[in-house]
Structures are given as structure tokens and as C-alpha cells.
Design a protein around this nucleic acid. Structure first.
Lengths: 338, 338
DNA sequence: CCGCATCGTCGAAGCGCTTCGAAAGAGGCG
DNA sequence: CGCCTCTTTCGAAGCGCTTCGACGATGCGG
């Protein structure tokens, strides 16, 4: 491997001149710069990563902490890790993957050894062990998700509350009067995954505000079977369903409604909200307010880079407004006669 | 952050003594070692990653190259990247994630800058651009998957050929006479994904050897709809199906067979082989020979660490024998009267 | 014509660690 | 008692880079 000394020799200049010519941190004559760049190019020179890290006190590495809980959607996780990596590259950072139990310990390690310049924390629980840890680290950290106690943290997430409100509003505005929410499985909520709670609570509040009959169910298995049954028990004239659940449950919904002679959107309107999968390939695609991995990760990395490069570590919560993708699964109801 | 000098001072020894006490590369009296360890502990000392990398000429980082093609299964990719990371940690390596277009360029970069000590290449195509690149790199590289030209490479994969043969053998041995293979979507094969080809070819060869009627279909959409229709056109008495396909296609199979009054395993036996998803939660679970991410990645990382630490870079192909998980989806057929 | 900025380049220090060679001390043997 | 060996520890070099201070050269104004 060629070193900066080789380039310097080839270009007939000093080592520091090469460094400045390549970094642009001091002015260099155009002619000298050209010579240096040519030499670097000819030698295929790339700076030795660890030497650069040591001297510059910067690793250009972002750690990504991703615990991967058994009950969460692998494909969604993948998307977040990948998007974080992609966006980080655009900022000239590489990403280090910290998974499973090392999601926690790895944060401490990569911060203490200064392996990472910053950390992105994914799959955040309400009561996440990584929250107190992050507070003790010298290393800037951004959470994708909102834990219970956000004091001192930088957090980014879809505005699940706004999404829940918009879902309710759209259904109510279109004349729906009995709205059910199919949420996540009970174990997901018990573990303390944060967004299902936020979504559910906002859903309940908005339904109350709008004065509409409503019910919330949590699927027990991997289909919407029991959820639909329980919704219909509580809302016999169910005309709207909001989905904030897993892809397997969502994809089974149309068929299960069909067994009860219910057709989407003829009899029941459906909106999927805060979901990280697409319903476009479902037999009946649903209107969707997606949990957009790219948007969340881009925002997170932007904030992190700002903290690293710009030194702006002031705590804040950034909520991303939901987008609405129309697939025609919401049908206006005739206003019931007073 | 505490440095090795701080530890040395606290323990009342020299820097090199601390280094040797911690690394164990030279003998140190028990008493001195204890003192050093105590001091390191008290100060919360962890060696500065880049300083250590620079001095030791070792990064303890493995790059993971994962292009993520649009037509491939996100959850499966996730599993491979995660498992690689997990196994790497057990060897005291961290993993750097290289995705999308950077899967290729990142390999060059992390090798040239010596950011990575080795590379694991995932999601390998038959004609993968990363193959010729790997040959030019100084950095040891292990492929998870078998490209067309394996000259000079270290590769690990499930023995798809053996899996195909075993699937055919099990069906034929159980008296099946018309066996269909539902393979991957045409675009997956066109892109040159390597294992579907290997599996299909071995399937065809074994069916010929065993003298059994057979057909191969490639699903067009995301269900097994058309595949089943085309199989039945060509094999009117279809009694066995081998699945080497995507989870969406596989999960739709039972229901689609049901529309034709075909029940698994009463009328048709099914074996899923070389798949990275579980069929355990399907309405009818299938016998499965899994593509085990953990096994593949563990083997890959072992080989890579051997190459890095042990200097053993001799090219080789390691094929992992398939396991067979019985879910009762294969039913012995009465031998037809001669 | 001299002094003073300004510009482009250079030399050297230093980032925190590993590792080599050597020094110092301990112990055994003739 | 001296010599040699072995063990334990130390000092210093060096990994490849960034960056600071300085130095010579050039250009300008007084």
C-alpha cells in the first residue's frame, strides 16, 4: 500500500503539502495540487484508515445499535439498518453494526474506544436500557423512536400520534361511525415497544374527541382472525378499520373479512398507519401512512452528523409528519339520517 | 478517556509493561499484572481503537458486503448480516456494513485503507462483480454463495445440490411419481442469483436419474397461483411439490391447492428446500431443509478469521450438508400396481 | 529601496498504542 | 566470589497521518 510519503516523494513535495493538497485545509498552488493529485492517483493512494483516525481523532464511523427482538419484523429492521448505512455513506461515514446483546455493550465499547464518532439507536423500547447508557457516553447518540424518558436525548420518529389522528379524521370525515384499531400483538406492547402505545393512545383520544364508536384489539396469532371477531363483537356495524400491526396480520385481513361477507372498501374502509411494509401487493391494497425507514434514518443521521461535525448536541425530539398514500380502500359512507 | 499512560502511572509501571500485562504477549509477574489490571479497571481504561489499529496493523473489523437486490427477501438478508455480526463478535471482530452500490466500492475502499481485516460477501450472483474485485484485494475475502468462477476464492454455502437430491429422493422413496419444483421468480434467475440455478439443475438431474415425471415452474407474481396451474397442466397427477422459492409464494401454496381440492399431504406432499424462512407458522407447515443463516455465516466467519489470524488463504469451497426438518407434509403413496 | 503582509511550502511534533532490544536483577553453578 | 542465564521490566522507535508554527519568497505601499 502506498503511503502519503510515497505520494510526497513522487510529487516532489513534503508530506504536509500532500496532506493539505488532498484535504484542502490550506491553500496550495494549482500546479502543486495537480502534481500531488496525479501522483496520488498514479499510486492508487488512499489514506490508511487508522492512521487518519488517530491523527484526526475521528473515525468517520457511526455505530448502529439494533437489538432485533424476536417479536419484531425482520424486514423492517433490515430496512432501517440499511437506510442508516446508505445515508451515513452520503455523509462519508461507515457504519458498524451492533446487534443482539452487543447492541448495548457495543455502544459502550465503541464509544469508550472511540471506534465510533456517533451512535444511531434503532428499535427503541419505552424503557430502553440504552437510554441511561447513552446519557453517560461522550459519544453523540440519536434515537430512532421515542422512549419514556427523553431527557437529554436526541430522538427522531414518525409522528405516530399525528398518523393516528389523521386516520381517525379521514374515516370520520368520510362518514364512518364505528372504527376499530387492530394494533400489535400483546407481547410487543408488554415488551414496551414504544410506538404501538403512542399510536393507540392517540387513536383513543381522537375517537373520543370526534365522538365516534371505537374499539382496540390486539391480535393473538399471526392472522387477523380473532381480531376481526372481537371487533365485530364490540362494534356490530364496524365500518372502518385502522391497521397499526404486523404484515402477516395485515395481509390476512381482506380474506378474513370476506368470510363474513365484508368487502373492502364496500362494507369496511381500511387504513394502515405507521407500518413499515407496503400493502401494494395485497389482494386489496390499503391506504397507507407509512413508517418510512428512509425518512427516519435520513433525519437521524443528519442530526447525528450535525452533532459530530457541528457540535450541536442539544437534546430535541423530531417528529416526522406522516404521508398519506391513497389506494382506494376508504369509501365515503352515506351520512346516516338524523 | 484514560490512556495507557494513565494506567501505567497509576500502576507505577511503564507503558510497555501495561501493554504486555493486558495482552499477555510477554510474561509479567502475577503481582504486577494484578496491579495493572486493578489500575486499568479503576480508570475504566479501554485502548483507543485507532491507536491500537495503527500500531498493531489490525483493525479487528470485518466488512460485510450486501447489495440487497430488489427481488430478494429482506428478512433473509437481515438474518445473514446479523448472524455474521454475531459470529464475528465471538471472534472479537466488529462488522462494517457495506450496502447497495457501496457493496462493491466499499470493498475496495475498506481494503485499500485497511479499515477492514477481511470481507464477507453476501448475496452472491453467478456473475458477481465482487468476484474479480476480490481477487485483486490484499484483504482476505469469503463468499457466502457460489459464483460461476470460483478460481482462487473461499466460498461457503448450503449444499443446494444435495438438498435438491434429498428432496427428490425422499419423495420418490415415498412412492411419488409426478414431482413439481416451484422455483424462484424469473427475474431472480435472470439476475444470476446462483443458488436457484444450482438447485434446479440438481433437481432435474436427480428426477431423471430416478426416472420420475417432473416439471419446473417459476412464479410470476407473489403467490403460487400460476405456478400450481402450470404444474398441473404438465403433471395432471401431481403428487409431490418441492419448494425452492420466496416466502410469499410458499405461504400461499396450501390455500391455492385447496381451491383445486388438493390437500397437503393427503393429495400432494410438499418439501421446502434451501429456503431461509420457516414454514412452522403456515396453515400447513411443510417439511423443510433450511438455508440456515447461522450455519452459513458461522462457517464463513470461521474461514475468514482463519485467513486473517492463521494466514490460511488457500482457496476452497465449503458446502454445508442440509438438515431435514419434518413437519409431516410428506405422505407415503401406495406403490402403483405394475 | 526598505519594511511588512501574504502566500505556499516545509519540518516536526504528536495522536495512543505495540513491540523490539536492552538493562537490571535474581539465581545457579563452578 | 564471579560468571552466565533467565526472568521481568523499561525505553524508544515507529505505525501513517494531521496540523501547528515557521520560513523563504513574492508583492505592495510608503
Amino acid at each position: 500500500m502506498a503511503t502519503i510519503a510515497d505520494v510526497a516523494q513522487a510529487a516532489g513535495v513534503s508530506i504536509s503539502t500532500v496532506s493539505y493538497a488532498l484535504s484542502g485545509k490550506r491553500s496550495i498552488t494549482a500546479e502543486t495540487r495537480t502534481r500531488v493529485l496525479a501522483a496520488a492517483d498514479a499510486l492508487g493512494y488512499l489514506p490508511h484508515a487508522s492512521a487518519r483516525m488517530l491523527a484526526a481523532n475521528r473515525s468517520q464511523i457511526i455505530a448502529v445499535s439494533e437489538p432485533v427482538h424476536a417479536d419484531t419484523d425482520d424486514a423492517a429492521h433490515m430496512a432501517f439498518a440499511m437506510e442508516t448505512t446508505k445515508v451515513a455513506r452520503a455523509h462519508n461515514f461507515d457504519t458498524l453494526l451492533l446487534v443482539h446483546d452487543d447492541a448495548l455493550e457495543g455502544m459502550r465499547r465503541s464509544a469508550a474506544t472511540q471506534l465510533a464518532d456517533g451512535i444511531v439507536v434503532l428499535d427503541v423500547d419505552v424503557d430502553d436500557a440504552r437510554v441511561p447508557l447513552a446519557r453517560t457516553l461522550a459519544c453523540p447518540t440519536v434515537f430512532v423512536g421515542i422512549p419514556a424518558d427523553t431527557a437529554g436525548l436526541i430522538c427522531v420518529d414518525l409522528d405516530f400520534e399525528a398518523a393516528a389522528r389523521e386516520a381517525v379524521d379521514r374515516l370520520v370525515d368520510a362518514g364512518h361511525r364505528q372504527i376499530g384499531l387492530i394494533s400489535h400483538r400483546p407481547e410487543t406492547l408488554e415488551r414496551g415497544s414504544n410506538f404501538p402505545l403512542r399510536f393507540r393512545d392517540a387513536f383513543l383520544a381522537r375517537c373520543d374527541e370526534r365522538g365516534v364508536a371505537h374499539a382496540v384489539v390486539h391480535p393473538n396469532g399471526h392472522t387477523a382472525d380473532g381480531s376481526v371477531r372481537r371487533l365485530l363483537e364490540r362494534l356490530p356495524d364496524l365500518d372502518g378499520i385502522v391497521l397499526s400491526t404486523t404484515p402477516d396480520v395485515a395481509s390476512s385481513l381482506s380474506a378474513i373479512l370476506a368470510t363474513r361477507e365484508l368487502v373492502v372498501p364496500r362494507d369496511v374502509s381500511v387504513i394502515a398507519a405507521g407500518v413499515s411494509f407496503s400493502t401494494a401487493r395485497f389482494a386489496v391494497p390499503f391506504d397507507t401512512m407509512p413508517l418510512d425507514a428512509h425518512a427516519s434514518c435520513a433525519a437521524a443521521v443528519d442530526l447525528l452528523v450535525q452533532a459530530i461535525d457541528g457540535g450541536d448536541r442539544s437534546p430535541r425530539i423530531v417528529l416526522l409528519p406522516p404521508a398519506y398514500i391513497d389506494h382506494g380502500s376508504v369509501l365515503a359512507r352515506a351520512t346516516p339520517p338524523d
